[in-house]
Protein backbone atom coordinates (compact mmCIF):
# COMPACT_ATOMS: atom_id res chain seq x y z
CA UNK A 1 0.00 0.00 0.00
CA UNK A 2 1.24 3.45 -0.76
CA UNK A 3 0.03 6.92 0.15
CA UNK A 4 -1.66 7.44 -3.22
CA UNK A 5 -4.01 4.51 -2.81
CA UNK A 6 -6.52 5.89 -0.33
CA UNK A 7 -9.34 3.92 -1.97
CA UNK A 8 -7.92 0.65 -0.71
CA UNK A 9 -7.61 1.54 2.97
CA UNK A 10 -10.82 -0.41 3.51
CA UNK A 11 -10.71 -3.12 0.90
CA UNK A 12 -13.50 -4.91 -0.91
CA UNK A 13 -14.37 -8.45 0.04
CA UNK A 14 -15.74 -7.77 3.51
CA UNK A 15 -19.04 -9.26 4.65
CA UNK A 16 -21.22 -6.14 4.56
CA UNK A 17 -24.74 -6.37 3.13
CA UNK A 18 -25.39 -4.97 -0.34
CA UNK A 19 -25.77 -1.21 -0.02
CA UNK A 20 -24.11 -1.19 3.41
CA UNK A 21 -23.91 2.27 4.96
CA UNK A 22 -21.06 1.35 7.34
CA UNK A 23 -18.76 0.32 4.52
CA UNK A 24 -19.38 3.59 2.69
CA UNK A 25 -18.89 5.65 5.84
CA UNK A 26 -15.66 3.91 6.84
CA UNK A 27 -14.32 4.26 3.31
CA UNK A 28 -15.06 8.01 3.26
CA UNK A 29 -13.41 8.45 6.66
CA UNK A 30 -10.22 6.72 5.52
CA UNK A 31 -10.17 8.52 2.18
CA UNK A 32 -10.23 11.78 4.07
CA UNK A 33 -7.82 10.82 6.85
CA UNK A 34 -5.30 8.92 4.72
CA UNK A 35 -3.16 5.97 5.74
CA UNK A 36 -1.37 7.61 8.68
CA UNK A 37 -4.01 6.74 11.23
CA UNK A 38 -5.01 4.16 13.83
CA UNK A 39 -8.65 3.12 13.90
CA UNK A 40 -10.48 2.17 17.10
CA UNK A 41 -13.71 0.38 16.28
CA UNK A 42 -16.11 -0.61 19.06
CA UNK A 43 -18.36 -3.63 18.59
CA UNK A 44 -20.95 -3.41 15.83
CA UNK A 45 -21.65 -4.31 12.22
CA UNK A 46 -18.53 -2.55 10.98
CA UNK A 47 -16.22 -4.60 13.19
CA UNK A 48 -17.98 -7.90 12.57
CA UNK A 49 -18.23 -7.61 8.81
CA UNK A 50 -14.68 -6.40 8.21
CA UNK A 51 -12.62 -8.74 10.38
CA UNK A 52 -13.62 -12.41 10.26
CA UNK A 53 -10.30 -13.93 11.41
CA UNK A 54 -7.96 -14.57 9.67
CA UNK A 55 -9.21 -11.97 7.18
CA UNK A 56 -9.26 -8.21 7.68
CA UNK A 57 -10.47 -5.53 5.29
CA UNK A 58 -8.38 -2.86 7.01
CA UNK A 59 -5.21 -1.57 5.47
CA UNK A 60 -4.68 0.74 8.40
CA UNK A 61 -3.88 -0.37 11.96
CA UNK A 62 -7.17 -1.29 13.56
CA UNK A 63 -8.33 -2.37 17.01
CA UNK A 64 -11.63 -3.63 18.30
CA UNK A 65 -11.90 -4.15 22.04
CA UNK A 66 -15.45 -4.01 23.40
CA UNK A 67 -18.86 -2.48 22.71
CA UNK A 68 -18.70 0.33 25.24
CA UNK A 69 -15.05 1.34 25.51
CA UNK A 70 -14.16 2.95 22.17
CA UNK A 71 -13.50 6.36 23.72
CA UNK A 72 -11.21 4.92 26.37
CA UNK A 73 -9.28 2.66 23.98
CA UNK A 74 -8.73 5.63 21.66
CA UNK A 75 -7.48 7.64 24.65
CA UNK A 76 -4.95 4.93 25.39
CA UNK A 77 -3.77 4.70 21.79
CA UNK A 78 -3.23 8.45 21.68
CA UNK A 79 -1.45 8.53 25.04
CA UNK A 80 0.83 5.68 23.99
CA UNK A 81 1.79 7.41 20.74
CA UNK A 82 2.66 10.57 22.68
CA UNK A 83 4.59 8.73 25.40
CA UNK A 84 6.63 6.81 22.87
CA UNK A 85 7.32 9.84 20.70
CA UNK A 86 5.42 8.32 17.78
CA UNK A 87 2.46 10.72 17.60
CA UNK A 88 3.73 12.92 14.76
CA UNK A 89 0.84 13.39 12.34
CA UNK A 90 -0.75 10.06 13.11
CA UNK A 91 -4.50 10.43 13.55
CA UNK A 92 -6.39 8.40 16.12
CA UNK A 93 -9.90 7.78 14.81
CA UNK A 94 -12.79 6.15 16.61
CA UNK A 95 -15.58 4.75 14.43
CA UNK A 96 -18.67 3.30 16.03
CA UNK A 97 -22.38 2.93 15.51
CA UNK A 98 -25.17 4.74 17.33
CA UNK A 99 -25.30 1.96 19.94
CA UNK A 100 -21.65 2.08 20.95
CA UNK A 101 -21.51 5.87 20.65
CA UNK A 102 -24.78 7.24 21.98
CA UNK A 103 -25.84 4.49 24.39
CA UNK A 104 -23.54 1.91 25.94
CA UNK A 105 -20.30 3.73 25.19
CA UNK A 106 -21.28 7.30 25.97
CA UNK A 107 -19.52 7.25 29.35
CA UNK A 108 -16.14 6.31 27.97
CA UNK A 109 -16.57 8.70 25.07
CA UNK A 110 -17.51 11.52 27.44
CA UNK A 111 -14.35 10.83 29.45
CA UNK A 112 -12.16 10.96 26.35
CA UNK A 113 -13.69 14.27 25.20
CA UNK A 114 -13.53 15.83 28.67
CA UNK A 115 -9.81 15.04 28.73
CA UNK A 116 -9.57 16.40 25.19
CA UNK A 117 -7.35 13.69 23.76
CA UNK A 118 -6.24 14.40 20.21
CA UNK A 119 -8.74 12.04 18.60
CA UNK A 120 -11.55 12.18 16.08
CA UNK A 121 -14.63 10.14 16.78
CA UNK A 122 -17.07 9.31 13.99
CA UNK A 123 -20.52 8.07 14.88
CA UNK A 124 -21.97 6.09 11.98
CA UNK A 125 -25.62 6.44 12.92
CA UNK A 126 -27.96 3.94 11.29
CA UNK A 127 -30.54 4.57 13.98
CA UNK A 128 -30.85 1.15 15.63
CA UNK A 129 -28.80 -1.86 16.77
CA UNK A 130 -28.45 -3.41 13.35
CA UNK A 131 -25.77 -5.94 14.28
CA UNK A 132 -28.15 -7.74 16.64
CA UNK A 133 -31.25 -7.45 14.47
CA UNK A 134 -32.68 -3.93 14.42
CA UNK A 135 -33.40 -3.14 18.07
CA UNK A 136 -34.06 0.47 19.06
CA UNK A 137 -31.28 2.78 20.25
CA UNK A 138 -31.37 6.36 21.50
CA UNK A 139 -30.63 7.24 17.86
CA UNK A 140 -33.84 5.64 16.62
CA UNK A 141 -36.19 8.33 15.34
CA UNK A 142 -39.73 8.94 16.54
CA UNK A 143 -42.25 6.64 14.94
CA UNK A 144 -39.81 4.00 13.65
CA UNK A 145 -40.78 0.40 14.18
CA UNK A 146 -37.87 -1.73 15.39
CA UNK A 147 -37.80 -5.21 16.91
CA UNK A 148 -37.82 -3.74 20.43
CA UNK A 149 -40.07 -0.77 19.62
CA UNK A 150 -42.43 -2.52 17.25
CA UNK A 151 -45.61 -1.00 15.92
CA UNK A 152 -48.67 -2.81 17.25
CA UNK A 153 -52.33 -2.25 17.88
CA UNK A 154 -51.40 0.01 20.82
CA UNK A 155 -48.13 1.39 19.48
CA UNK A 156 -46.94 3.59 16.66
CA UNK A 157 -43.41 2.33 17.11
CA UNK A 158 -40.59 4.17 18.85
CA UNK A 159 -42.13 6.87 21.04
CA UNK A 160 -39.01 8.93 21.85
CA UNK A 161 -37.06 11.48 19.87
CA UNK A 162 -33.47 11.03 18.71
CA UNK A 163 -30.91 11.98 21.32
CA UNK A 164 -29.11 15.18 20.31
CA UNK A 165 -25.67 13.62 20.48
CA UNK A 166 -23.77 16.39 18.66
CA UNK A 167 -25.03 18.88 21.27
CA UNK A 168 -23.69 16.65 24.03
CA UNK A 169 -20.28 16.56 22.38
CA UNK A 170 -20.34 20.35 21.92
CA UNK A 171 -21.07 20.63 25.66
CA UNK A 172 -17.75 18.90 26.30
CA UNK A 173 -15.97 21.88 24.83
CA UNK A 174 -15.01 20.06 21.64
CA UNK A 175 -13.30 22.40 19.18
CA UNK A 176 -15.05 20.80 16.19
CA UNK A 177 -18.37 19.00 15.95
CA UNK A 178 -20.15 18.38 12.67
CA UNK A 179 -23.08 16.44 11.34
CA UNK A 180 -22.84 14.86 7.94
CA UNK A 181 -24.44 12.21 5.82
CA UNK A 182 -23.11 9.35 3.74
CA UNK A 183 -25.39 10.70 1.00
CA UNK A 184 -23.02 13.64 0.65
CA UNK A 185 -19.59 12.07 0.26
CA UNK A 186 -17.73 15.31 -0.35
CA UNK A 187 -19.36 16.98 2.64
CA UNK A 188 -18.42 14.02 4.82
CA UNK A 189 -14.81 13.80 3.63
CA UNK A 190 -14.32 17.55 3.96
CA UNK A 191 -15.59 17.48 7.53
CA UNK A 192 -13.59 14.40 8.50
CA UNK A 193 -10.47 16.05 7.13
CA UNK A 194 -11.19 19.17 9.12
CA UNK A 195 -11.84 17.09 12.24
CA UNK A 196 -8.62 15.09 12.04
CA UNK A 197 -6.64 18.25 11.31
CA UNK A 198 -8.06 19.96 14.40
CA UNK A 199 -6.10 19.34 17.59
CA UNK A 200 -8.22 17.93 20.41
CA UNK A 201 -11.29 15.72 20.60
CA UNK A 202 -13.44 16.25 17.51
CA UNK A 203 -16.73 14.63 16.62
CA UNK A 204 -18.46 13.75 13.37
CA UNK A 205 -22.00 12.43 13.43
CA UNK A 206 -22.77 10.73 10.12
CA UNK A 207 -26.31 9.79 9.21
CA UNK A 208 -26.17 6.35 7.60
CA UNK A 209 -29.27 4.66 6.19
CA UNK A 210 -29.24 0.87 6.53
CA UNK A 211 -31.22 -0.95 3.82
CA UNK A 212 -31.51 -4.09 5.90
CA UNK A 213 -32.71 -2.40 9.08
CA UNK A 214 -34.83 0.34 7.57
CA UNK A 215 -36.41 -1.66 4.81
CA UNK A 216 -35.53 -0.18 1.45
CA UNK A 217 -33.87 -1.49 -1.66
CA UNK A 218 -30.10 -1.84 -1.32
CA UNK A 219 -29.57 0.31 -4.41
CA UNK A 220 -31.12 3.31 -2.63
CA UNK A 221 -28.77 3.92 0.34
CA UNK A 222 -27.45 7.21 -1.02
CA UNK A 223 -30.90 8.30 -2.18
CA UNK A 224 -32.36 7.67 1.28
CA UNK A 225 -29.52 9.55 2.97
CA UNK A 226 -30.12 12.56 0.71
CA UNK A 227 -33.86 12.41 1.31
CA UNK A 228 -33.34 12.67 5.10
CA UNK A 229 -31.31 15.83 4.54
CA UNK A 230 -33.69 17.24 1.94
CA UNK A 231 -36.74 16.87 4.21
CA UNK A 232 -34.76 18.50 7.06
CA UNK A 233 -34.94 15.57 9.47
CA UNK A 234 -31.14 15.43 9.34
CA UNK A 235 -29.61 18.94 9.21
CA UNK A 236 -25.98 19.26 8.20
CA UNK A 237 -23.96 21.76 10.18
CA UNK A 238 -20.57 22.50 11.72
CA UNK A 239 -19.95 23.81 15.21
CA UNK A 240 -16.53 25.24 15.97
CA UNK A 241 -15.68 26.03 19.58
CA UNK A 242 -19.37 26.03 20.46
CA UNK A 243 -20.53 28.31 17.61
CA UNK A 244 -22.43 27.20 14.51
CA UNK A 245 -20.16 28.14 11.62
CA UNK A 246 -21.83 26.45 8.65
CA UNK A 247 -25.22 25.01 7.75
CA UNK A 248 -26.24 23.27 4.55
CA UNK A 249 -29.22 25.19 3.19
CA UNK A 250 -32.25 23.33 1.86
CA UNK A 251 -34.06 25.56 -0.60
CA UNK A 252 -37.28 23.63 -0.98
CA UNK A 253 -37.61 21.21 1.90
CA UNK A 254 -39.44 18.06 0.89
CA UNK A 255 -42.32 16.86 3.07
CA UNK A 256 -41.21 14.18 5.54
CA UNK A 257 -43.86 11.84 4.09
CA UNK A 258 -41.69 11.34 1.05
CA UNK A 259 -38.86 10.08 3.26
CA UNK A 260 -41.07 8.02 5.57
CA UNK A 261 -43.06 6.22 2.91
CA UNK A 262 -39.90 4.96 1.24
CA UNK A 263 -39.00 2.81 4.28
CA UNK A 264 -40.77 -0.17 5.82
CA UNK A 265 -39.85 0.92 9.37
CA UNK A 266 -42.45 3.71 9.00
CA UNK A 267 -45.02 1.87 6.88
CA UNK A 268 -47.43 1.37 9.82
CA UNK A 269 -47.87 5.13 10.02
CA UNK A 270 -49.55 5.04 6.62
CA UNK A 271 -51.87 2.15 7.52
CA UNK A 272 -52.90 2.67 11.12
CA UNK A 273 -55.71 4.86 12.31
CA UNK A 274 -54.16 8.04 13.69
CA UNK A 275 -50.95 7.42 11.77
CA UNK A 276 -51.39 10.72 9.98
CA UNK A 277 -51.15 12.53 13.33
CA UNK A 278 -47.85 10.77 14.05
CA UNK A 279 -46.54 11.79 10.63
CA UNK A 280 -47.58 15.34 11.47
CA UNK A 281 -45.47 15.13 14.65
CA UNK A 282 -42.50 14.04 12.56
CA UNK A 283 -43.10 16.94 10.17
CA UNK A 284 -42.97 19.22 13.21
CA UNK A 285 -39.53 17.82 14.09
CA UNK A 286 -38.33 18.76 10.60
CA UNK A 287 -39.91 22.20 10.92
CA UNK A 288 -38.11 22.70 14.22
CA UNK A 289 -34.80 21.88 12.54
CA UNK A 290 -35.58 24.38 9.78
CA UNK A 291 -36.22 27.08 12.36
CA UNK A 292 -33.35 26.16 14.69
CA UNK A 293 -30.64 26.00 12.02
CA UNK A 294 -32.19 28.41 9.52
CA UNK A 295 -32.10 25.69 6.88
CA UNK A 296 -34.35 27.50 4.39
CA UNK A 297 -32.89 30.98 4.74
Amino acid sequence: MSDNQPFNLLTAGHNGCAGCCDALAAKYVLMAAGPDCIVVNPTGCLEVMTTPFPRSAWNVPWIHSLFENGGAVASGVEAALIAMGRKGNTKVIGMGGDGSTMDIGIGALSGAFERNHDITYVCIDNEAYMNTGVQRSSGTPFGASTTTSPAGSKSYGNNTNKKDMPAIMVAHGSPYVATTSIGYANDMMKKVKKAVDTVGSTYIHAHAPCPTGWGFDSSKTIEMAKLAVDCCLWPLYEIENGEITAVKKIKDPKPVEEYLKAQSRFKHLFKMEGGDKEIEKIQQLADKNIAKYGLDK
Partner: peptide
Protein backbone atom coordinates in the same frame (compact mmCIF):
# COMPACT_ATOMS: atom_id res chain seq x y z
CA UNK B 1 -9.75 -0.02 28.40
CA UNK B 2 -7.27 2.83 27.92
CA UNK B 3 -4.45 0.45 28.77
CA UNK B 4 -5.77 -2.05 26.23
CA UNK B 5 -5.40 0.68 23.60
CA UNK B 6 -2.02 1.78 24.92
CA UNK B 7 -0.59 -1.73 25.24
CA UNK B 8 -1.80 -2.64 21.75
CA UNK B 9 0.04 0.47 20.53
CA UNK B 10 3.21 -0.96 22.04
CA UNK B 11 3.50 0.89 25.34
Amino acid sequence: SALIGASATGA
